[in-house]
Computed example of a mutant assay.
Amino acid sequence: MKNLTTTLSLLILTAVISGCNAESSEAVKPSVRPVKLLEITDINAGSLRSFPAKVAATKQAELAFRLSGHLVEFNLVEGQQVNKGAVLARLDRRDSQNTLLNREADYELAKADFKRKGELLRRELISQAEYDLASAQLKSSKANLASAQDQLSYTELTAPYDGTVAKISIDNYQMVQANQPVLVLQKDSDIDVVIQVPESLASKVTQFNPNAITQPVVRFANDPSSSYAALLKEHATQVTPGTQSYEVVFTLPRPANMTVLPGMSAELTMDITQHNSQTLAAILPASAISKRDQDGQTVVWAFDSKLGKVTQQMVTLGKVTTDGIEIVDGIKVGDQVVVAGVQYLSEGLEVKPLRWQRGV
């Protein structure tokens, strides 16, 4: 009986000692540090925007005669295409021709008189004053002749560029006054598309990145399956009355395979990111970036989800922006980077995600 009691006491003592050792082992086991992670995604995600647009003429001119007269030749119709230099309309030119003949006669007479006066002055038969008067009369008659030639040319209205007759304001055989609108001519080679941009996006649209992978494209309502590249032309610096938006104009060559007229509906799609997405890998907060003590290299801490550990990853920095610091190289889409408490990390340290946050 005494031996049995001794044996039980030894077993109980052994169990107690083993339990204490286990508790001690658990107590000294290091804890796994939680870290805040940022997953690198495509920097262009969500940067595309589409805006309703209206087609407008790139160049439009309201043409008029520079003098009054009787319209005798005007056979255009709206929508007709004309070439640069083509005569669009003509006034009765008889009065201008008669004036020109008179000015030519005056000029020839003054020219002959000036020549005679020069010979007489050389022979000292007239005074210098008479010679100077003849010279002045010659110059005056020459100027009058040039003016008469201009007046005759003003009886014709010519096209300043290749274009389309958009509007006709008068009929043939009417009396027209100087500077009275005759027709509206629109340029043919290019067209504009006009969009209204809310103030929250105005700076991004008007200073869009020319190196962005996705450049502005236009789709027209009568052929939405086709897209056409466009370039920023100009933008307003004052809001459109009655709205909190700004007018922005893009331009593009007129599509050759379809008819596009001013006033038609369209849609413009563009990448509003202001970063050079061809070379930029990501944008990270400053708290995610540190310098290595031994060599001063710029690094971030990348998390390996399979091993549950962090390792240093050397990166190349770009510009400092309002969104964070640009990372040009060293990380890629899908990487997970520690963005807080990097000063407490060491190479190969076991960590666990504190919270997942999807970023740029």
Rank of each mutant, 00 (worst) to 15 (best):
L4F: 14
L10Q: 14
I12C: 05
T14G: 11
A15K: 00
R33F: 13
V35H: 15
K36I: 14
L38G: 11
S47Q: 12
R49W: 06
R49L: 08
P52H: 02
P52C: 01
K59Y: 15
Q60W: 09
A61N: 11
L67S: 15
L71I: 12
E73S: 09
N75M: 06
E78H: 00
E78Q: 04
G79K: 01
K84N: 13
K84T: 13
G85H: 01
A89T: 00
L100E: 10
L101N: 15
R103L: 10
R103K: 10
E104Q: 07
A110L: 01
K111L: 15
K117V: 10
L125C: 10
D132R: 13
K139C: 09
K139Y: 14
L145Q: 10
L145V: 07
S147K: 15
Q149L: 08
T158W: 05
K167L: 03
S169M: 13
I170G: 12
D171C: 14
Q180D: 04
Q180H: 05
V182K: 03
L185Y: 02
Q186C: 09
I191H: 02
D192T: 05
Q196W: 07
Q196E: 11
S200R: 11
P210S: 08
T214P: 05
A221S: 00
H235L: 13
A236K: 02
T240R: 06
T240P: 13
P241Q: 11
G242C: 06
T243A: 05
Y246F: 14
V248K: 03
V248M: 05
V249S: 02
N257S: 08
L261W: 01
G263F: 00
L268V: 00
M270Y: 04
D271V: 00
L280P: 05
A281V: 07
I283D: 01
A286L: 06
A288C: 03
I289H: 06
S290N: 09
D295K: 00
T298I: 05
V299N: 12
A302M: 07
S305P: 14
L307V: 02
K309Q: 15
T311L: 14
K319E: 14
G324R: 06
D329K: 00
D329H: 02
G330E: 03
D335P: 00
Q336K: 08
Y344R: 13
L349A: 10
L349Y: 12
R355A: 12
